[in-house]
């Protein structure tokens, strides 16, 4: 019994060490970029999964929190604020926004939360475009000292942090309470679980980590329009990756992110639009026909195999 129980933590530790060693052994831009992207997308999707998967609340405005993190972090960083503080500020801004949006909309049932978050994200996107119409490019000084490795490590940190949060969400007392809320709020309440507080805390953690991930993106990208970080495509990618891998499953987002990026690479010989089209159709098919995603498929195969 003891050996199998120790295997997964040991494997995870090895995995983290390997991931952490990657920049020491290669300076290949394409490999590091690929690693950065996969970690960024794991963090993005897992942060959505915390609320959407573990909590069952469909947030269609995830991009808003990613965008806020990116915007705040990048602006402060370019103004000379130390990067760590800028990242913290972006994270704090996103969590505050989560609190402001979540408090009214999470009290409601039915479609309100989804449409409320969708509306907030679109309004923030438009406002960001209005207030910051100019493209944000790194100044020459920053460009000269631009290295991928620190970006990679930050993305690794964000991915590990979201994975850790998801692990806690699956195991802790809070996680059990949140699962009860996802299944049936009235029964959760009758069991002593304060449904609203659980949903709100999950939402704030989810948006905080989305903000942190956005901050890493803001630090990574050489040049982008601030509005781009608020694009609904970020929300869609988070949903697609989570559903691909498995909603509410700890290993769903990493599996989904790997599959998503490989598929995107494979489709990249075509125009941007074509892969969006294929991903849209794929997403609908998963929601309708394979709601468990890859993780569930894996489990089914394993069950049949033994």
């Amino acid at each position: 019994m003891t050996v199998p129980r120790l295997v997964p933590p040991a494997l995870i530790a090895c995995g983290v060490v390997v991931l952490g060693a990657v920049p020491l052994f290669t300076s290949s831009r394409s490999l590091l970029t690929w690693g950065f992207l996969i970690l960024l997308y794991i963090a993005l999707a897992q942060s959505w999964n915390l609320l959407g998967g573990f909590g069952g609340q469909v947030n269609l405005g995830h991009a808003a929190f990613f965008g806020l993190g990116a915007l705040v972090t990048r602006m402060l960083w370019l103004k000379g604020v130390p990067l760590v503080l800028a990242l913290l500020a972006g994270t704090a801004g996103a969590s505050l926004a989560g609190l402001i949006v979540g408090a009214p909309s999470l009290r409601l049932h039915g479609p309100y939360f989804a449409i409320g978050t969708l509306a907030v994200a679109e309004i923030l996107r438009i406002t960001a475009g209005n207030v910051f119409p100019e493209v944000s490019t790194l100044p020459a000084r920053a460009l000269a000292g631009y290295h991928l490795a620190p970006r990679y490590y930050l993305a690794l940190g964000a991915a590990l942090l979201t994975m850790l949060a998801a692990w806690r969400f699956g195991r802790s007392r809070f996680g059990y309470g949140l699962a009860a809320v996802r299944e049936d709020e009235a029964v959760a309440e009758a069991s002593g679980v304060h449904a609203f507080r659980h949903k709100l805390l999950a939402f704030v953690v989810s948006s905080a980590l989305a903000g942190l991930t956005g901050g890493v993106f803001g630090f990574y990208h050489v040049s982008f329009y601030p509005q781009f970080a608020f694009s609904p495509l970020w929300t869609f990618d988070a949903l697609l990756i989570t559903f691909l891998g498995g909603v509410g499953a700890l290993w769903g987002p990493p599996l989904g992110a790997a599959f998503f990026l490989m598929l995107r690479e494979a489709l990249a010989f075509r125009l941007l639009e074509v892969h969006v089209l294929i991903f849209g159709i794929l997403f609908i098919i998963i929601v309708l026909a394979f709601p468990g995603g890859l993780v569930e498929g894996w489990r089914t195969l394993a069950r049949r195999g033994y």
Partner: peptide
Amino acid sequence: ADNVLVARLYGR
């Protein structure tokens, strides 16, 4: 078991 566990974790 988890149905009961939640109630035990959050009860009186």
